[in-house]
């Protein structure tokens, strides 16, 4: 940019040395970030694919190529298939519930005033606590002798096997995720709702629209882009859910709450089958990318309506 101030007599005939001298600051400024990014993102992404074709055990740097065996194994292995199905269930119900609860509460507390701000804080705070700690906290509370069963006992309700019976454990995982995550969705919805110009509501009121009609016909269409962001972020985030499961159920009972990342990390590091883990990672990456893009494109329609 210094060029704009110095007088350059023959701009088209700058020598190669001159060109590089002008580029040098840019390279010095951009180079380190590019190098770090290549080493920790781009190279590993390609390596993930290469390693997925091998039987690497994670320790030695000797391994053999075994073709697509790891991929075939991923579709055959019942543990991986079960984990994939449970992950899909968590991602689906988690996304629906986080956004449903988040939007409902955002709509209820979108006004100004202290009470609304306080509510916002209360609903949001779990989001900044590590998922691992959330998992341990709920694990302690939902245990057979935990606080929740203690309370139910006082009410005369027999103990509920929240974490020890398959169906309950699955529901507990999903509800714990929703408890800790919907506040984030709520915050984004709130930002969207607050950015709707008040004139729109005034016009709707003049037309005699009820509160519900206003929400339905003014707010919802106008926050369509926020809705898309919320859906994509929640879905993509839940496809890789791990920490909370590890702490809450450790994949149990009987492996019924293992997610795909739980499976990947266990195969890779506990079982030393990093090649197999890498193959599952590549599948997860593809599924994440396809679903993320699919939701984004599917939502285009809803967003387009606003633009018209």
């Amino acid at each position: 940019m210094a060029d704009t101030l110095t007088v350059v007599p023959h701009p088209r005939r700058r020598s190669a040395a001159r060109v590089w001298r002008d580029r040098l600051p840019g390279i010095v400024m951009g180079g380190p970030a590019v190098l770090v990014f290549l080493a920790m993102f781009i190279v590993p992404m390609f390596l993930a694919f290469v390693l997925s074709l091998t039987d690497w055990n994670g320790y030695s740097l000797n391994f053999t190529f075994i073709g697509l065996d790891n991929y075939a194994e991923a579709f055959r292995n019942p543990r991986t298939v079960d984990a994939a199905i449970f992950t899909a269930v968590v991602a689906f119900f988690g996304t629906v519930l986080c956004n449903g609860v988040g939007l409902t509460i955002a709509a209820l507390i979108s006004g100004s005033g202290r009470a609304n701000t306080l509510m916002r804080t209360i609903f949001f705070y779990p989001y900044i606590i590590s998922a691992l700690i959330i998992g341990f906290l709920w694990s302690a509370m939902l245990a057979p002798e935990g606080a929740v069963n203690g309370l139910l006992g006082h009410l005369g309700v027999p103990p509920v096997p929240f974490l020890t019976e398959v169906a309950f454990a699955k529901a507990s995982v999903i509800l714990t995720i929703v408890w800790s995550h919907f506040g984030f969705n709520m915050i984004l919805f709130l930002a969207g709702i607050k950015s709707v110009p008040t004139e729109y509501y005034e016009a709707a009121t003049v037309d005699g629209a009820s509160r519900w009609q206003q929400f339905r016909n003014v707010t919802l269409p106008l926050i369509a882009p926020v809705f898309t962001v919320n859906l994509v972020l929640t879905l993509v985030g839940l496809l890789k859910v791990y920490d909370i499961v590890l702490a809450l159920t450790d994949g149990g009972p009987a492996g019924s709450t293992q997610t795909i990342v739980y499976q990947i990390l266990r195969d890779s590091f506990a079982q030393s089958e990093l090649g197999f883990g890498a193959a599952q990672s590549v599948i997860l990456l593809l599924v994440t990318a396809v679903l993320g893009l699919a939701v984004t494109f599917a939502r285009r329609g809803a967003e387009q309506k606003v633009a018209d």
Binding site: A39, M40, F41, V43, P44, M45, L47, A48, L51, W56, G58, V236, L239, K240, Y242, V261, I264, L265, S268, L274, G277, A278, S281, V282, L284, L285, T288
Partner: peptide, 12 residues
């Protein structure tokens, strides 16, 4: 996703 690159990052 970070979990996807973690295995090859260990390699690197």
């Amino acid at each position: 996703p970070g979990q996807v690159t973690l295995i090859p990052v260990v390699f690197v």
